[in-house]
Write a protein that binds this DNA or RNA. Structure first.
Lengths: 339, 339
DNA sequence: CTGTTAGCGCCTTCAT
DNA sequence: ATGAAGGCGCTAACAG
């Protein structure tokens, strides 16, 4: 690293004052185009790079965004959220400072403290699956955007997936393939996705005049083994469904296994659609699993852009709470119902 | 955020100078225990928190560690690496600034530039799977530790999994179960893991006096579908193996599918061990997949701790290149060979 | 043991 | 259109 060149070396080399250099490089002030250009090329030639600690200290803008997550390690798609945020931040000349809490609020508070000590300009408060949150007290007064999380506060921007819309999309796909007897493999956690996806399931049935049949709904924890058990139960029904809409890909994998055990072939005897588009599973299953993608990357981008707009005090900087659409990703797990 | 309290308010409230406050809080200087305690409690009462931009500017220690990764989004266990690093950093009163390159060296250079502008104290240069790297020029002179990556430079610390050891562990487990005819489902990428795991496979055979049989080795891309195809080929052999050691869990999933298609039951007819311990797969497969865990979390921790030691200029701060052991995680995919 | 005095590198009035 | 000067909050000499 050696001794980095500072604004004063540039000033000396360009034969101007440090003020002029500062203005030239940051686009501010009233500097003639000629001077500005000259200073810029001198700076570039000298390989000048600003010291963000110093500029942050003076200007109260660190260009650092804090990213607070709850369980970055256990959620395979956490990387996409982070990536979306990171790329959007880079485009704004910002950088991400990441802190993970492991769902421990003491650790979370410590992490937030650390971020504030480093003078982050704002914070993305991210959950790794859609949930309702109460914002930590330490965050009051700090510009914050909620990611994959919602709260009852209307003064905060937030972005979550459109759970009900995702379920509708999944169901419409099955209905369009001709299915009328569609089971729902649901989960049991008390999270918004639980409510939203079930609501979408029912709404889709209603929209097509199909009566809701309680016996076609089985639930379990949202993992493979419970999914397998729950699926086995519906598939054992005398009048079993011809298609299954699954809460997520892990449960869908369980449904595949249950189908195998029951001697059913997918999609000939049973069609399956789920939510997550978790590629390691969806692509690997045989046949490929048709699934609704959750917009992880996009939520990451949106959160940063929203935060940037609010920090800039832009005209449209009123907080927004949005639900993002979730696209269908076609693979091979859906076919017409067996006759 | 309002106006944060600074060192001078604390000094005034405690009736001492700012120097005394600084020394009291940072543990330096010669301050009487009484004063130190008093200052500390005053600071706490005032809810003082240091401004790290200012202290970093002055002391040349930002307490920020840069984390440079290549493809955080596509690798499901990236979160564990990050988590290990983050937790270790927090324990050192450091915080992580994360930058991802998507394997694009221009983006990577920009990211590293940003980190340097923010005066990171050091950098963890991480890859998401074990590979040999050439360090970007921008990093010369910056304290750096390689994570899941190795280079030919002996002046840099690095940590990678012990690939050969992992393979040996896997093979010993199969051998201990009584298998003698063991196939290897390998991959084709030009990465250290390819070489190391194959070497471990051969070494284990040799150690038990079992001749290497080329026909038992099939390879493919390290994903499920190619794994399925490769496995189908060995399983079609007249004298098929009684066990399969797989390059990774995704290929192992392919092997499960191939076994099913061939009417073979695991582990009755075929035992399987692989490497990754990627829980979303290993736990979900039926039966559970016995797999060797890669020490992602541990590598993250180690890298930060090594970097901290080097930054502190500790006695044992000579660079180290280490290979981490990979533990066996037992599930249900291994049994005795069929008679 | 404690206090005084200079900056760290930059941005921002304010004057020219 | 450009420059001079002060200070962001803190720590590191150096004095006492």
């Amino acid at each position: 690293m050696s001794k980095r060149v500072g604004i004063r070396e540039v000033a000396a080399a360009a034969g101007v004052s440090v003020t002029t250099v500062s203005h030239s490089l940051s686009g501010g002030g009233q500097i003639s185009d000629a001077t500005r250009e000259r200073v810029r090329s001198v700076a570039e030639g000298l390989n000048y790079a600003p010291n963000r600690l110093a500029s942050g200290l003076r200007s109260k803008r660190s260009q650092i965004i804090g990213f607070v997550s709850d369980e970055i390690s256990t959620t395979p798609y956490a990387g996409n959220v982070l990536l979306g945020a990171q790329e959007a931040a880079a485009a704004n000349d910002q950088v991400l400072m990441v802190v993970n809490s492991n769902r421990n609020s003491r650790i979370e508070d410590r992490g937030i403290d650390a971020l504030l000590q480093h003078s982050v300009d704002g914070i993305i408060y991210a959950r790794m699956y859609h949930q309702a949150v109460k914002l930590p007290a330490a965050l009051s007064g700090v510009p914050t955007v909620l990611l994959d999380a919602s709260s009852d506060r209307t003064d905060l921007s937030s972005v979550v997936p459109d759970e009900e819309g995702a379920a509708l999309t999944a169901m419409e796909h099955l209905l369009a393939a001709g299915h009328r007897r569609i089971g729902y493999l649901g989960n049991i956690d008390e999270i918004p996705a639980t409510r939203g996806r079930l609501a979408g399931y029912r709404a889709a049935l209603a929209a097509h005049g199909i009566p809701f049949d309680e016996s076609l709904v089985t639930v379990g924890e949202s993992m493979t083994a419970p999914g397998r058990d729950a699926a086995s139960r519906v598939l054992a029904l005398a009048d079993r469904p011809t298609a299954l809409f699954c809460f997520n890909d892990r449960m869908a994998m369980g449904a595949y296994q249950a189908a195998h055990l029951a001697g059913l072939e997918i999609p000939r005897d049973l069609s399956i659609v789920s939510i997550d588009n978790f590629e390691v599973l969806a692509d690997a299953l045989l046949p490929g699993l048709t699934s609704i993608a959750l917009p992880h990357y996009e939520m990451g981008r949106w959160a940063i852009e929203r935060l940037a707009a609010e920090l800039a005090g832009e005209a449209d900087s009123a907080p927004q709470q949005i639900q993002m659409p979730c696209p269908l990703v076609l693979r091979q797990s859906v076919g017409p119902p067996p006759r």
